[in-house]
């Protein structure tokens, strides 16, 4: 079993061509990036706004509740309802992207909101009292303090999107999901398992990259990597985030 998977993964001919692993991987990465980018552009400003103003908390609860909708069902529904109104290939792309964006928004939104919410009220009060405008309070204090949780939400979203983007293959969009579907259809277990392994590896690599970026963008003062002199670990950003932002993946 394992040797056949290994053979499938390493044979050069499986990597080339428009149906090859190389192209499928690129498609998968491309969709995932697009989806997370769109979700971040929506969820981060929204989360900052809700956290900063304290208004519209229901938005966060509502999107959290929306996580219960199965993404695959949503994908088919969108493909059936929205697809016919869109010309050409976009008829397939748009429904998948929407379905995956809806999947990615809740963790990013929840992480951002929870991060801003958790900012020490005294720091916020001091920022205002020293003469920061509301925008400056948001950009210079709330956002950087919220980053550990925000980043956890983002990582969570990336993992979910990479795992779930396999379903886009059901409506003909390619990506690594193709190998799962084709492999199952052809009873080619090496291909199915190989595809699954590639999805896992991609997820691990993406998470590793984000973890490295986190070291650069998150201040050591809030990341928990610096310890108190007395040896107590303060707010371990990563763990805290994982507690608040559930790591669930569904396909």
């Amino acid at each position: 079993m394992i040797p056949t998977i290994w053979t499938w993964l390493t044979s050069a001919q499986n990597w080339v061509g428009s149906f090859g692993i190389g192209n499928r991987l690129a498609q998968h990465v491309g969709y995932s990036l697009l989806v997370v980018a769109i979700a971040a552009v929506i969820a981060i400003p929204l989360g900052l706004w809700v956290g900063h103003t304290g208004r519209g908390r229901w938005v966060v609860s509502a999107t959290n509740a929306a996580r219960a909708v199965p993404t695959l069902g949503l994908l088919f529904a969108l493909a059936l309802w929205v697809g016919p109104h869109i010309p050409g290939r976009a008829a397939f792309v748009v429904p998948s992207v929407i379905a995956l964006v809806l999947l990615a928004i809740p963790p990013i939104l929840a992480g951002t909101y929870a991060g801003v919410e958790a900012v020490d009220p005294a720091a916020r009060d001091a920022a205002k009292g020293l003469g920061m405008t509301p925008r400056q309070v948001l950009a210079r204090v709330e956002l950087p303090c919220a980053l550990p949780l925000l980043w956890s939400g983002l990582r969570s979203a990336v993992l979910q999107v990479i795992a779930t983007a396999t379903i886009a293959a059901y409506i003909g969009l390619g990506g690594l999901g193709r190998f799962l579907i084709d492999g199952l259809a052809q009873a080619d277990y090496a291909q199915t398992a190989g595809g699954a392994i590639l999805v896992c590896l991609l997820a691990l690599v993406a998470d590793g990259v984000l973890a490295l970026v986190q070291r650069v963008v998150v201040s050591p003062g809030v990341s928990g990597r610096r310890r108190r002199r007395r040896g107590i670990i303060l707010a371990p950003g990563k763990d805290m985030g994982h507690g608040n932002v559930a790591h669930t993946t569904r396909a």
Binding site: A123, A126, A127, L130, G131, S219, V222
Partner: peptide, 29 residues
């Protein structure tokens, strides 16, 4: 905001910015 930048403000729990170093905290205003 202009008024506040001209008035020093100290509160009970200091309210330091946790993501900034001590020096950058002091250099805020």
């Amino acid at each position: 905001a202009t008024l506040r930048r001209g008035i020093g403000y100290v509160i009970q729990h200091a309210g330091l910015f946790p993501h900034r170093t001590v020096l950058d905290n002091v250099a805020t205003v």
